Deep mutational scan, measured.
Amino acid sequence: MAAGGDHGSPDSYRSPLASRYASPEMCFVFSDRYKFRTWRQLWLWLAEAEQTLGLPITDEQIQEMKSNLENIDFKMAAEEEKRLRHDVMAHVHTFGHCCPKAAGIIHLGATSCYVGDNTDLIILRNALDLLLPKLARVISRLADFAKERASLPTLGFTHFQPAQLTTVGKRCCLWIQDLCMDLQNLKRVRDDLRFRGVKGTTGTQASFLQLFEGDDHKVEQLDKMVTEKAGFKRAFIITGQTYTRKVDIEVLSVLASLGASVHKICTDIRLLANLKEMEEPFEKQQIGSSAMPYKRNPMRSERCCSLARHLMTLVMDPLQTASVQWFERTLDDSANRRICLAEAFLTADTILNTLQNISEGLVVYPKVIERRIRQELPFMATENIIMAMVKAGGSRQDCHEKIRVLSQQAASVVKQEGGDNDLIERIQVDAYFSPIHSQLDHLLDPSSFTGRASQQVQRFLEEEVYPLLKPYESVMKVKAELCL
């Protein structure tokens, strides 16, 4: 049975990233139509530049190519590739079939990587351009969430054990800070992308030097003109047959890092959902379990974690691919890159769409948070109580021993009897502590235990987050809708 299948058929496997999760716009960027249309555009740009620099290419040939950029006979191309065992030459023939007058000058002087690699770089750039505003929107939604809850005390956790208090907004800023680093890295790697350009079979530009009869300047002009037509500021000066596969490492490393950030955020949300302090959106008709109707599973956060793990592992592909590119190139890269580049971007696209949807509907339960604080705060307040007693004339050592005994009794009630923490009640009825009984409410005010959390939130948002989001103001209103 021949390899390949009808990918629109229910009898043929289709990647869930495309069929179930990723956005239509990201799927289109990695589609065959987008790819092969870009090949034709690159052939047109090459012909236009070659004509401008004096090669015998007519206006009629150029116009014929322009008129057929979208006229792609995919069936013919597939048949040609089956016959020739070469995808680029299959599309040269297919393009030439609908451009008979231009057929002889299509791909003039070029090698397969002229269309293959340059198209990949265009796709990487455009895919990054799709991700950047999506990530900015996630940051914006979380920034709104953090600002609104900047002063809401909550129990902090280290080692997932109760620690000092923080605020809900401050905790959210930990998430935002990681995503801001990801946004900066995505922008950097996007701006650092260079075009492969017009380089020939081993990167020496020998074929173009021959076409222009040894004119170095025209060869350099050709490279520059096509690079500018493709919208790049610069091209690699040095290439082998391909652009260095280190570029793929750079791009997928940034995406993998984004995956790590999203995994951490969504894990926190899942843990908070278990504590009943916070939940992701839950639709009115949504079913959490087929057997347990009360369940409210954090399905979206779980999906993000599941896909983020996949995204983090994909960076190993370009690392290994770059390491086995012998001399000017081997074909070890080809099949692998067809999979890992598309999957990385479709996965990143999915987790950003999902995280935006989550961040637009996060639900906080202040009463649950308050109750958990009441359970733990008495123990945390013991040092403040000791200091207040010393100020009232008591002995630190005597007070410490009193607190120690009462704390152990209260802990026994919590752990052995399943009761509430009654340390404060014990202190309130103990005559030894009568000098500070009137101060206990103040000493137990949760806001006095959150330090500068709310001020940190305000400063972080104003100095770091809002300036970073400013270039994306025009796209901030787009909502994230999930079908599944």
Rank of each mutant, 00 (worst) to 15 (best):
G5W: 11
P10H: 15
P10K: 15
D11H: 15
S12P: 10
Y13E: 07
R14G: 15
P16E: 10
L17S: 13
R20S: 00
R20G: 00
Y21M: 00
P24M: 13
P24I: 14
E25G: 11
E25W: 01
M26D: 07
F28N: 09
S31P: 00
D32P: 14
F36D: 12
F36P: 02
R37C: 09
R37G: 10
Q41N: 12
L44D: 03
L44Y: 07
L46K: 02
L46G: 02
E50W: 04
T52L: 09
L55M: 13
I57S: 02
T58M: 11
I62A: 03
S67D: 13
N71F: 13
D73A: 07
F74W: 10
M76A: 10
R83G: 14
D87W: 02
V88Q: 05
M89H: 00
M89C: 06
H91L: 09
H91C: 09
T94F: 07
T94M: 13
F95H: 07
F95A: 09
F95Y: 11
C98D: 12
A103H: 11
A103Q: 11
A103V: 13
G104H: 15
I105D: 06
I106Q: 05
L108S: 14
G109T: 01
A110R: 02
T111M: 06
T111I: 00
C113F: 03
C113L: 06
G116M: 04
G116K: 00
D117W: 01
D117E: 01
N118E: 02
T119P: 00
D120S: 06
L121H: 04
I122R: 01
I123D: 00
R125D: 06
A127N: 04
L128M: 10
L131S: 11
P133I: 13
K134N: 15
K134G: 13
I139N: 11
S140F: 15
L142W: 11
F145C: 08
A150P: 02
P153N: 03
L155F: 03
L155Y: 02
L155M: 04
G156F: 00
G156D: 00
G156S: 12
G156E: 00
H159R: 01
P162S: 09
T166L: 11
K170H: 07
R171F: 03
R171S: 00
C172M: 06
C173R: 01
C173F: 05
Q177V: 14
Q177K: 01
L179F: 15
C180N: 10
M181P: 06
M181S: 10
D182W: 01
D182S: 04
Q184D: 14
L186E: 03
R188A: 02
V189C: 15
V189R: 08
D191K: 06
L193H: 08
R196F: 04
G200N: 03
T202Y: 01
T202F: 02
T202S: 13
T204F: 00
F208V: 04
L211R: 01
G214W: 11
V226H: 01
G231C: 07
F232E: 01
F236T: 05
I237Y: 11
I237M: 10
I237C: 12
Y243R: 00
R245P: 01
D248E: 09
D248V: 02
I249L: 09
L252M: 13
V254R: 14
L255I: 09
L255E: 05
L258T: 09
L258M: 13
S261M: 01
S261E: 05
S261R: 04
H263Q: 07
K264S: 05
I265L: 15
I269D: 01
R270D: 05
L271G: 05
L272S: 08
L272Y: 10
M278I: 12
E279S: 03
P281R: 12
F282C: 01
Q285H: 09
Q286P: 02
S289I: 01
S289Q: 09
S290G: 02
S290K: 03
M292T: 04
M292D: 07
Y294D: 03
R296C: 08
P298F: 07
R303S: 02
R303F: 00
C305R: 04
L307W: 04
R309M: 10
H310V: 11
V315I: 12
Q320G: 10
T321R: 03
S323D: 08
S323I: 02
V324F: 13
Q325H: 10
W326Y: 09
E328H: 00
R329H: 08
T330N: 05
T330D: 05
A335Y: 06
A335C: 12
N336R: 03
R337C: 05
L341A: 13
L341E: 13
T347C: 13
A348K: 01
D349Y: 06
T350P: 05
N353T: 05
N357H: 08
V363E: 04
V364Y: 04
Y365L: 09
P366E: 14
K367P: 06
V368F: 06
V368C: 07
I369D: 07
Q375V: 01
Q375M: 12
E376K: 05
P378V: 07
P378A: 04
M380T: 01
N384C: 13
I385N: 03
A388C: 05
A392T: 12
A392P: 04
S395N: 12
S395K: 08
R396C: 02
D398L: 14
R404T: 05
V405A: 14
S412Q: 14
V413I: 11
Q416S: 09
E417S: 08
E417G: 10
L423K: 03
R426L: 05
Y432H: 10
P435V: 06
I436N: 04
I436R: 04
I436T: 05
Q439W: 05
L440N: 08
D445I: 09
S447H: 15
S448T: 11
F449I: 00
T450V: 10
R452P: 02
A453S: 13
R459A: 11
R459T: 12
E463W: 08
V465F: 02
L469N: 08
Y472L: 15
S474K: 15
M476L: 14
K477T: 11
V478D: 15
K479W: 15
L482W: 05
L482Q: 14
L484C: 13
